[in-house]
């Protein structure tokens, strides 16, 4: 029958002894992990050369659940850790898997500078519009008018447009999807894993316990239906036009895919030019 031989494609990538995970029913983070598993399989990368780095938060738990070399860093410092990892061992494919609060708020400075320098890391940002784990506070991604624990009358701060922020800072690959677009996420993740340079994928995901409940938007499934109905795929759209309104239309797609020398390449080139044979660079140990 094959009953005993069949195995969930995500299973080899999970630390099964830690299941069930702590994510709430209807949370979209697990869905993105499925896509990541498919992307790793399709990219054909040797798994002992892939490392996952996460910061703090619900999405930050991904590093703890994925059965690869992974590191759960301090809050907001996933990108600096990943930068060090990549520079010290350029053979690794380094993926940063974290949330909007971690990457864009407390780690916002690291984010823009890693994009500016074109560090060769793949940043996957699960955006649920709120600080989930700490109790539903306003994040730099909370849409105008959305209610949060620290904004009981609605948020009055203009949120970041993440693809625009990434592109204008220098990212070479920028895409945005929602948790509904599973095949697209898997495809984008595959492309990002194969691409050289700072790649950024934003994935909108439901937070039924805090964001959806406080805003009376139903549960995770209602949010997935909203994503299905109100998402418009516009590949190559200008990132300038990708602002998100509260429960408005969502523009998704792959927006940027360009080539630019990475930090490692520019550094090697300059040092080789200046120091000539005195420069060793990195060598395979």
């Amino acid at each position: 029958m094959g009953m005993t031989t069949a195995v969930n494609p995500v299973e080899p990538l999970l630390r099964s002894e830690r299941m069930p995970h702590l994510w709430c029913p209807g949370c979209g983070i697990g869905t993105t992990v499925n896509c990541f598993a498919r992307a790793l399989e399709r990219s054909k990368l040797p798994l002992d050369k892939v490392a996952v780095v996460s910061g703090i938060g619900c999405t930050g738990r991904v590093a703890g659940y994925i059965n690869l070399d992974s590191f759960h860093t301090t809050h907001g410092r996933a990108i600096p850790f990943a930068t060090g990892l990549k520079l010290a061992n350029p053979d690794l494919t380094v993926a940063v898997y974290s949330g909007d609060g971690d990457l864009i708020s407390i780690g916002g400075n690291h984010f823009i500078h890693a994009a500016r320098r074109n560090v060769d890391i793949k940043v996957i940002c699960v955006n649920n519009f709120i600080y989930g784990m700490t109790g539903g506070q306003v994040a730099p991604t909370t849409p105008l008018g959305a209610v949060a624990t620290t904004a009981p009358y609605g948020s009055f701060e203009r949120p970041f447009n993440l693809p625009f922020l990434a592109e204008s800072s220098g990212a070479v690959y920028v895409a945005r999807w929602t948790a509904y677009h599973v095949q697209h996420i898997a495809h984008s993740m595959t492309e990002a894993l194969r691409k050289k340079g700072f790649s950024f994928i934003e994935i909108l995901a439901p937070c039924p316990t805090l964001y959806q409940r406080r805003n009376k938007l139903g549960d995770g499934l209602d949010t997935m239906r909203y994503y299905k109905e109100r998402s418009v795929i516009k590949n190559g759209a200008s990132t300038r036009d990708l602002d998100l309104d509260f429960q408005g239309e969502i523009t998704v797609g792959k927006f940027v895919d360009v080539e630019r020398p990475t930090l490692q390449e520019t550094m090697d080139r300059l040092y080789r030019q200046r120091l000539e044979d005195r420069y060793f660079g990195w060598r395979q140990p």
Binding site: G2, A6, N8, P9, V10, E11, L14, M19, P20, H21, W23, P25, G26, C27, G28, I29, G30, T31, V33, N34, C35, R38, V182, Q183, A186, G220
Partner: peptide, 18 residues
């Protein structure tokens, strides 16, 4: 088609082709 396996946030379901 295994779309259930792609969606399931709890890694609890998947489909295969025999």
């Amino acid at each position: 088609c295994d779309l259930c396996g792609l969606y399931c946030p709890d890694f609890a379901i998947y489909g295969i082709r025999v």
